[in-house]
Design a protein around this nucleic acid. Structure first.
Lengths: 332, 332
DNA sequence: GTGAAAGCGCTAACAC
DNA sequence: GTGTTAGCGCTTTCAC
């Protein structure tokens, strides 16, 4: 039923080797043969079976991106960057979503183990450092956006600590001295911890005392931002500003603040992190820290493909430059 | 370097056939052999090469989802539904993003032609009916969310005409008689056209004259919603309500209305379509038409997999039930 | 219950 | 410049 290289060879009156040569752009083939093969391909509507080709060549030229959710504009933008770079280098990018389930992630990783793809980039992962290090010995993997403490694996991310420091410093420069922190209750979320450290360092370097009362930690779910705001509003001395480690949390906080009669940007300054697309569509627009998504995507793909092709693997941690963006939610 | 089935066979002291049987759960294998094979697999950390397996079996058990953008919560949710159903049926879902470039879409489709995947579902496509019909003769494809006029291809979507009718009727029931329409300037976007038709029928059935002045058509870009609102506001007799065929357009319109001193839900009612996640996070929250995303994903995967396995293909157009959701942007 | 061997579609080494 | 052929890793018939 399916037309194979043999059929093309027969139709063109040449051997399969010649057909293969034409298809793969080998120079050692006469103009005439080439012509005949092309006609046969056309006539039979032949499309080479890549299972055969990939099996033989032991490569697929496909990279799989695994992410917890596709409903995050940050990831979408990073993937666009990956795609751009991959195309230049002759690779295809496909993606899969785990829904933050480690079983699903593991299942998707089998595409790497069973050689269906040449490499994987993990946009946030549930694997721990030990597992990643073991994997990296036999396979080409990379982390993007979110590193893992102790993992000696190719990683591309912003300097979360410095980025948070810069964001909180921007709030301090606007005169805020009492700044609430909305974070994550986790020992493993390395970016969340780094952002918290950046917050703390900003306070310290500006001589502001670190008040344990001003921390709210839960998880990345939307509603947590609102709960944080409720908590802050309940304080006898409520903060004049809030730094949330994700835009979604910041947006939730902004909305809850309004319910409580506080207008973000006027009564309270609120700052997020990531610069998701929504930030610009909100009322008020959301101040935040931008990650250079496209650049991150391009970089991680370049490096990963180098690894795929090389014998010695580059397992460095690449830091890309962030950018604090001030919008309406922090006033003015 | 890579460990193969032969290595396992040697290690276990059995033939490759037996190893294969164990791996594929065949019953015709002794407890003892099975045990030995499992130990060898464990010891060698063997993972079967699916290129070999898939080549031999002529199937991959992978379905590719191609979409214009991954930055659309509608798509994310549909894919979650697909994944759920695919897992039940022993398939994996991978996805790829075209960025609305037909060249990219075509390239991604080659994964289907070259047998890297068993089937494709298109979440909106740039192919025309003729091309789709030709493709469907040789390959298993399905459309989801957005049908194509004249394409005899398995499709799952809401009844856009009826959904728009219901949405506009809801506005009319709230007392609006002058309702602006924000749509798309296209002859091929079947869902956009259907939604426009639904708008028109709602007016007609409620005895409202169809005023050509109340149409604004451009494209799906965010800013178009704002431009529509500027246009409506410039009218001598501006509409008291606006129906946009996408939530993004509605949100853009809401924001622009505010800039113009009009509060959505009070001074003007604004309604969207899709029920993207953002609707609930906006101020005001956005009234809209919900598509049953998860259900659509499950259905299209079930049907597509049936087609993959069957000789005669089901190319019907399946309609799923929508749901009008009234929130703050339409008042009360 | 098990093994030998053919063959899935392709590429590439080798011979001419 | 071209053809023959081995073999990528796997499943599956067939024979025992």
């Amino acid at each position: 039923m399916s037309v194979t290289i043999k059929d093309v060879a027969r139709e063109a009156g040449v051997s399969v080797a010649t057909v293969s040569r034409v298809l793969n752009g080998s120079c050692n083939v006469s103009e005439e043969s080439s012509q005949k093969v092309c006609e046969a391909v056309e006539k039979l509507k032949y499309s080479p079976n890549f299972l055969g080709r990939n099996l033989r060549k032991r490569e697929t030229n496909v990279i799989l991106v695994i992410m917890p959710t596709s409903e995050h504009s940050l990831y979408s933008k990073i993937i666009m960057g990956m795609q751009k770079q991959a195309e230049k280098l002759g690779y295809d990018i496909i993606s899969a979503v785990t829904g933050s389930a480690s079983t699903v992630e593991a299942r998707q990783m089998t595409m790497l183990f069973n050689r269906t793809v040449d490499g994987v980039v993990l946009l946030g992962t549930l694997y721990d450092a030990e597992a990643l290090n073991r994997l990296a010995q036999n396979y080409d993997i990379a982390l993007c956006c979110e590193g893992v403490e102790g993992a000696n694996v190719l990683t591309v991310a912003v300097d979360d600590e410095q980025a948070a420091f810069d964001a909180v410093t921007a709030l301090i420069r606007k005169g805020h001295r009492r700044i609430g922190f909305v974070g994550i209750d986790s020992k493993t979320a390395i970016s969340a911890i780094a952002r918290e450290n950046g917050y703390r360092r900003a306070l310290k370097e500006h001589g502001i005392t670190d008040d344990p009362e001003l921390y709210y930690r839960e998880n990345y779910e939307y509603d947590c931002g609102g709960r944080a705001m409720e908590y802050f509003a309940s304080l006898k001395e409520r903060p004049s500003a809030v730094f949330a480690i994700s835009d979604l949390l910041a947006i939730s906080a902004i909305n809850k603040a309004r319910d409580l009669g506080l207008e973000a940007g006027k009564d309270i300054a609120i700052m997020g992190f990531d610069n998701i697309t929504m930030c610009d569509m909100m009322y008020p627009t959301v101040s935040t820290v931008e990650q250079p998504c496209e650049k991150m995507g391009e970089l991680v793909i370049s490096k990963l493909i180098s690894n795929i092709r090389a014998d010695i693997k580059d397992n460095r941690y690449y830091t890309v430059r962030h950018n604090v963006i001030m919008r309406e939610s922090t006033g003015n």
